[in-house]
Nucleic acid binder design. Structure first.
Lengths: 347, 347
DNA sequence: TTTAGCACTCTTACTCCTCGAGTGCTAAAC
DNA sequence: GTTTAGCACTCGAGGAGTAAGAGTGCTAAA
């Protein structure tokens, strides 16, 4: 059963009002604040109907209505008016992102910070997903005998490094030769295809110095793990503490549940990944309330989108806020930040 | 006016009880739970006296007493019994810290995590203060034309790196020569003595290739800023969300104030530094309630200590918890972690 | 299909009251 | 001088009762 026009308007008005006030909306308040050309009694009938259909909920008999998850979903899918970002706001974001960045991590931190400041909610920025990227450089730098810094550079502009231990007596020259060999053999190869075996064959095919097999393998193993750990996503999250100011989290129990989950970066990153796959074709992904399968986020909504590096889908940015969120505003903000990132990462 | 023995016992008992229950302690409850050989009336007199002297406070006339900041201070300074860590707990911490670490940062993260888990409060671990350390290595690694990774290695075992931009046409060889020259000229020099000028003279004294002055200066400037930013402390903080479970933070306003401040790493690091200087000679530094000059931490206590690298005072670890904290337990935990760090960083 | 009217429900806020924990003080006992 | 028993007093927590107000659903008429 579809919603007739007035019911749509009613639902829309209720969501708008509830977002603004965080108070259940009654038929009278609705009449007062909007130009419905009908009486409150008519709205009451509509509201009762909307409740029967699952779009609205009533905290108690004598309170007004609040949108259900389904109500928000309908709102987001077809009712809300998409905001244009004000010029002032666009300029502000632009300024915050006009950092000179030499590593993508810095830009993402700035993006996350801008998003948190601008929305007033929790922001999220994740380094590019590396499955789609490939190795461009591998350097091993002797820091002191037995200690080597492995620097891994990936096509998406990500640079990671990691300190590893190797036998004391190896020289910088030997190490450099090994890393050069591996780099030659592997550069251009997608990360997903790099395994201990491909590393080993790369080294053996391209290597000039002779080293005992066992020794070589030890170094290669360290190189391999360094490459593999470069695969880890970094998650930048900001603005958590702002949630405490919202009435929905005035109960510390809820806030605790939320923070508990959010303190596990991996969980969040995994969920974003899952959502991104589900809504592959969409410009942005929205999950509302119970739709979110992470514990403690039932009162939240989660909006994410993907940014591109060199024109290819790379990583995610997103916002976590209360269900009672200014969806259209947040969407336009997140979109703007995404566009800025895309542009800066076009190179 | 000094406290007589019984008053000391009374204060100690009140702190112990209040820490355990978070409820104001009355004279009767005190008699019930402890073996005072006097009547409740006597204790009442003592408590009134202790209040007059500023060690206790009364939330309202008809409630029991709670310790004031001064009361906690007295408790910490001379009343509390120092706990020995249980073997089980020691073992647990040991296990958590038995990560194989190649960078000091990893060890500190583990230490912070162990401390948070063990105390149930907020833990803190800071990378070594670098004013006392000196440069041991400086490497510049060309990632792509115009982009160079500067790796700075410091005596305290800290490795930092930073991507910088340089003119496109410089070659890896030129860059390497410059960085070698700078490294030769500066290695062994305390960070505090490194300035743009010392960097420049180091380069010019040791350099073999000739580059136009302006070009060279540009590269040196980038090297210099990379060295300088290696000076930034990293702060690892964990367990914030646990504070929400405490009754003193059931009011979200307070929690918000706390989290607001804690989200500024720099503030916290600066404060730790200040406290460390004030209590230079002490084994650990304690700040209670209003003694803490950070906003929003009036209901907290802050315990920090220093760990050593190679036998020299290096960085700080610490715990932030409610004033109503199990001081002796936390102190022994923090001490244990400190000892473990010292040992691991003896090298 | 819409509307006016009305009885009904339920929350919130306020007041009143009692209960109990805890106090301070006094006067007597040690 | 110190300790103790006794007692009046204070104050907050919690429960009961009540009134106000917001909002509803339903009915009957337009």
């Amino acid at each position: 059963m579809a919603l007739d026009n007035r019911k749509k308007e009613v639902l829309q008005a209720i969501v708008d009002d509830y977002v603004a006030t965080c108070e259940p909306v009654g038929s009278k308040a609705l009449i007062d604040r909007h130009d419905f050309m009908v009486s409150s009694a008519t709205l009451r009938n509509d509201m009762a109907e909307l409740e029967r259909m699952g779009y609205l909920e009533q905290p108690h008999t004598s309170a007004g209505r609040i949108p259900s998850d389904k109500g928000y979903r309908e709102y987001v899918n077809s009712l809300m008016k998409v905001d244009r970002l004000s010029d002032a706001e666009g300029k502000e974001i632009k300024e915050k992102l006009s950092v000179s960045f030499d590593e993508i991590a810095e830009l993402l931190k700035a993006a996350s910070s801008a998003l948190a400041d601008q929305t007033g909610y929790i922001s999220l920025a994740m380094t590019p997903k590396l499955t789609s990227s490939y190795l461009t450089q591998l350097k091993m730098l002797m820091i002191e005998p037995g200690k080597v810094l492995v620097v891994v550079v990936l096509s998406a502009g990500v640079v990671k490094n990691r300190m590893v231990r190797i036998p004391d007596f190896l020289t910088q020259e030997q190490i450099a030769q090994i890393s050069n060999a591996v780099e030659q053999g592997l550069s251009g190869l997608p990360l997903s295809e790099i395994s201990l075996i491909t590393v080993a064959t790369a080294a053996k095919d391209n290597q000039k110095v002779e080293l005992p097999e066992a020794l070589l393998n030890q170094v290669l193993y360290e190189a391999y793990t360094a490459i593999k750990q470069a695969d880890n996503l970094d998650v930048y999250m900001q603005g958590k503490h702002r949630m405490l100011a919202l009435p929905e989290f005035s109960d510390t129990k809820r806030a605790q549940g939320l923070f508990d989950t959010l303190s596990h970066d991996g969980l969040v990153a995994g969920y974003v990944d899952e959502v991104t796959k589900q809504d592959e074709k969409k410009e942005y992904m929205i999950r509302i309330g119970q739709e979110i399968t992470l514990e403690g986020l039932d009162d939240c909504s989660f909006i994410t989108t993907t940014y591109n590096v060199g024109g290819k889908v790379a990583g995610n940015i997103g916002v976590i806020g209360p269900k009672r969120m200014e969806y259209s505003k947040v969407i336009s903000q997140i979109n703007f930040v995404r566009m800025m990132l895309d542009e800066k990462l076009k190179q």
